[in-house]
């Protein structure tokens, strides 16, 4: 476990440390085997790989949404003490998650305003909703008239903008973007990446971006990791550990 967060210069605990994660859905056929990955504070890591290689599962484990069979998850230096509902609320909300398909990630009965405000309501901060939702909607480029609509009345791009705003509304220390831009056109992709980067520049939050668009992730992130080397089913015997690459011209260290 030579975690990258222990390198000299980065004295803060890493935002996310996954060590020896083995996870899956069906018994005896793990999707991930003995995977380790570290995202330092303020660092942007891109996780690259084809569909079905387990990268989304790893994102779900990192967000405490999927309980791994083995291994440990540390968020901001604290070991995860539970998964899903059993995770302490502060740990759960430390990671803001943006899912691939905004349609299925949005409760169809909520207006976009209620959708963005929902994490505030769930954590007893409803009084801040009007102010924060307004500012975030502005930041992601949603006009006030869109906020009263429901998911089936807006486009995929507009809905994903709302989902990004929802992921940011609790000021997460780590953003997990699982194929955030897969359903989007180029201009919306650019806009949302800018929103995320503005937020990170302001708060110093870390980023784990999962995707198969190499060009995008290499330009967006400080470094990229091949999911194939992380323990995908066909590669697991060869390289059980992450093979980390640093694209030329990008600073390797986080801010």
């Amino acid at each position: 476990m030579s975690a990258a967060g222990n390198t000299p210069g980065a004295c803060d605990p890493p935002a996310l440390r996954l060590s020896g994660i083995t996870a899956g859905y069906e018994r005896r056929s793990p999707v991930l085997r003995d995977v380790s990955l570290t995202v330092r504070k303020g660092e942007a890591v891109g996780l690259l790989g084809p569909s079905g290689c387990g990268k989304s599962t790893l994102a779900r484990v990192a967000a405490l949404l999927h309980r791994p069979w083995a291994g440990t998850v540390h968020l901001a230096g604290q070991p995860a003490r539970g998964w899903r509902y059993r995770a302490p609320r502060a740990q759960r909300t430390f990671a803001g998650v943006v899912f691939q398909q905004p349609r299925t990630a949005a409760d169809p009965r909520l207006t976009l305003h209620a959708l963005i405000a929902e994490p505030l309501r769930a954590t007893g901060r409803a009084v801040e909703a009007t102010d924060r939702v307004g500012r975030l909607a502005d930041a992601v480029g949603l006009g006030p008239e869109l906020l009263t609509r429901r998911p089936h009345e807006v486009s995929d791009g507009q809905l994903q903008r709302a989902c990004v705003a929802r992921a940011l509304v609790l000021d997460p220390g780590l953003l997990v973007c699982d194929e955030m831009t897969a359903m989007l056109d180029a201009s919306t992709t650019a806009a949302l990446v800018t929103v995320v980067e503005d937020y990170r520049a302001r708060t110093g939050a870390a980023l784990l971006a999962v995707g198969h668009d190499r060009t995008l992730l290499e330009r967006w992130c400080d470094r990229t990791v091949e999911a194939a080397g992380l323990g995908a089913p066909d590669e697991r015997s060869r390289t059980p550990r992450a093979r980390e690459t640093t694209p030329a011209g990008t600073p390797a260290s986080g801010t």
Binding site: R60, A63, L64, L65, R84, Y85, R89, R92, T93, A95, G96, V97, F99, Q101, T104, A105, A106, D107, E118, P119, A122, T123, C163, R166, A167, V169, L170
Partner: peptide, 13 residues
Amino acid sequence: RPFVDAAISGGAS
């Protein structure tokens, strides 16, 4: 459904 995951991640009980 993922929207339940999103709610959990947003701190919902």
